[in-house]
């Protein structure tokens, strides 16, 4: 299964396999050298700006290095990790990250699936609705965070205006972001708004791959709509659903922008990425911050391994 199957159908007989069968002569070796030459600049960039700093982050996480400090750093073993995991403040950032990730991915999937199913049916103006879905996706996270910050304003915000003055759902206005109990859910709602369309579009692409014949056949067999959804749509949508889920999980787990713009370093909404940035740069504790960064990396690494297994590079 490949995420690209629906866009770029691979040719039946790939030239690559034809070539592999050829005996490797001088031509083959020259071709191989050319391939490496072409890949080299990109590999160097990846090595320099991603792999090397990553290794450095691991190394720093075992030291007590501080930014711009005259003190010579010392190797402290796992002290940073032990300190972090013992600290309530860090544990609560982990908890916020998990809450953020699980609830935003959950709501995005449900809403995204619902929207995808609605758009999938034939109606006039379908293209227009699909285009509209791209708007929240295209809006920069910083912009969407400031937009919603204004919408959530406790006195003049439009959210309170709709809920209190128009729909009369609430009796009095709520300070959505200032109240520690509602701040994280309010931010999750912003993330859900911003990424649901992306989810819906990915799932829509998956739905369009399902042949209508199957539905017609099931109709002959007397299946009702609920049965059709759970026994045809959902199982056949599974590959697209999985890819979308994993991508969103990875993205949500490292969330920084929306939290930082709306609440900066407030403890009630701080996630691991925000915590890491505060330790690394604002508090100049490179060692400790790197340990927090490594923890995020390791969590994401597990998902990446899962993902690369799912889409099978060899088939490309």
């Amino acid at each position: 299964m490949s995420a690209s199957a629906d866009v770029a159908p691979l040719p039946e007989v790939s030239t690559a396999t034809q070539r592999r069968e050829r005996p490797a002569g001088t031509l083959g070796r020259r071709r191989e050298r050319l391939a490496w030459l072409l890949v080299l600049p990109s590999l160097l960039v990846v090595l320099l700006v991603a792999l090397y700093p990553l290794i450095q982050t691991f190394r720093l996480s075992f030291t007590n290095t501080r930014l711009a400090s005259a003190r010579t750093p010392r190797v402290v073993g796992f002290d940073n990790y032990v300190d972090l995991l013992r600290e309530d403040a860090f544990r609560s950032t982990l908890w916020h990250t998990v809450v953020f990730t699980v609830s935003s991915v959950f709501f995005e999937t449900i809403l995204g699936l619902a929207i995808a199913l609605v758009i999938h049916s034939n109606f006039r103006g379908r293209g227009g609705v699909r285009t509209a879905m791209l708007v929240p996706w295209a809006i920069p996270t910083v912009v969407s965070a400031s937009m919603w910050q204004w919408m959530y304003h406790d006195v003049f915000g439009v959210v309170n205006d709709i809920l209190v003055n128009r729909l009369h759902i609430l009796d009095q206005k709520v300070a959505w972001l200032a109240n520690p109990a509602t701040a994280l859910p309010a931010i999750i709602a912003v993330d859900v708004w911003k990424t649901t369309p992306f989810m819906a579009l990915l799932l829509l692409a998956g739905l369009q791959l399902i042949s209508t014949d199957i539905y017609e056949a099931s109709l002959v067999d007397g299946a009702n709509r609920v049965q059709q959804f759970f026994q045809i749509t959902l199982p056949l949508l599974r590959p697209a659903l999985l890819v979308a889920l994993i991508f969103r999980t990875l993205d949500a787990f490292r969330v920084f922008d929306v939290i930082y713009v709306m609440k900066q370093f407030a403890p009630e909404t701080m996630t691991v990425a925000v915590y890491a940035r505060q330790q690394l740069i604002d508090l100049a504790k490179l060692g400790r911050g790197s340990a927090a960064a490594v923890i995020i990396f390791l969590c994401i690494f597990v998902f990446v391994v899962l993902y690369t297994r799912l889409i099978k590079v060899e088939e490309m």
Binding site: Q56, F253, L280, G289, S290, I300
Partner: peptide, 15 residues
Amino acid sequence: TMFPGVAILGSLFLM
């Protein structure tokens, strides 16, 4: 493509 930017923030800052 799935690299978390914050994982290398500190070392990139030094570089």
